[in-house]
Write a protein that binds this DNA or RNA. Structure first.
Length: 290
DNA sequence: ATTGAGTCCTGAAGGC
DNA sequence: TGCCTTCAGGACTCAA
């Protein structure tokens, strides 16, 4: 799925087109994605003007002029494109020429269309209001933003203390840090030279205080996310920026997808290995990640 | 309370 | 060519 950098890239691509624009027509082409669409989905959006496009974790939040908030999640394979701006590759859209996985089309007054496409349908959309947004079931229990000021050694140590789960699963847990996914957890742990199989409790002292590992890990998490955003996200099988162009951070992966290839740490003679944790592939160097 | 397994769905890639 | 298996960026529910 798009992880935080990809969602943020899409947000930045959509913002200039969507904010200030009025939704003239909504084409909802099926009854559900991961969940059913809310009642009167299209009707509640039609005629509304978008006043703000925000992101929380991997969710896009479109605030409308009547207080409604459209919540969008892209799941594993969700993409958003803008007609007239597609430039590269397979994901250029011509107006009226629908793909079978184009599930929602927002037509703006300008004639531009915002197209949500999601083959696997692990994504979702819902409607709520600005005042009940924080209490929404999808958002109520998610953790802090990794790029914000809340990700501190103290926070991480407090949640890691006593945890027997491994570092990989711990960092993927959206209730602790929201927005990290499989790729960026692998990459952050590589940079921090931490073995993904270590117990999460290694990030805290016995009294739940931060240690050297905790303090070292945090800048690596922030750096890898910020660098990925700078690069316009990572393009794998099914992710492209909102304007259809492709991010290029995937060329900067040190371990993800590099099973059997040499470790990129200078002077390390290790080879990248893959194993499975919590049902997900983990890539790491067994020599320099300890 | 935590943790791991199973689940949703489609498509791409690789082996034979 | 085709048939089969495996894997994929997420995250929920359920049972131990």
């Amino acid at each position: 799925m798009p992880e935080l950098p990809e969602v943020e890239t899409i947000r930045r691509g959509l913002e200039p087109v969507l904010v200030g624009a009025r939704i003239e027509r909504v084409e909802q082409r099926r009854a559900d994605l991961r969940f059913p669409f809310p009642e009167n989905f299209g009707k509640r959006l039609t005629g509304r003007k978008v006043v703000m496009l925000a992101r929380r974790a991997k969710y896009l939040l479109a605030h409308l002029d009547d207080g409604t908030v459209l919540i969008i999640h892209l799941g594993m394979s969700g993409r958003i494109s803008i007609t007239g701006q597609g430039q590269l590759g397979e994901f250029t859209h011509n107006q009226g020429n629908r793909d079978i996985h184009d599930h929602v089309v927002l037509r703006l007054e300008s004639g531009t269309e915002i197209i949500y496409n999601d083959p696997r349908r692990f994504g979702m959309m819902d409607l709520t209001t600005g005042t009940s947004l924080a209490a929404h079931p999808l958002l109520a229990n998610i953790g802090i933003e990794p790029l914000g000021p809340d990700l501190t050694p103290e926070y991480l140590a407090r949640h890691a203390a006593g945890r027997r789960t491994n570092l990989k699963s711990f960092l993927l847990d959206q209730r602790i840090i929201a927005g990290l996914g499989n790729i960026y957890v692998c990459e952050a742990l590589f940079r921090a030279r931490l073995n993904p199989s270590r117990a999460a409790a290694c990030l805290a002292t016995s009294t739940g205080k931060p240690n050297a590992r905790t303090s070292a890990l945090i800048p690596h998490i922030k750096d890898v996310l910020n660098e990925a955003i700078q690069a316009g996200g990572s393009t794998l099988k099914d992710y492209a920026q909102a304007d259809g162009s492709l991010g290029y951070f995937q060329h900067s992966f040190h371990v993800y997808g590099r099973e059997g290839e040499p470790c990129l740490t200078p002077a390390c003679r290790g080879m990248v290995r893959r194993n499975v944790q919590a049902g997900r592939s983990t890539f790491f160097c067994p020599i320099c990640q300890r």
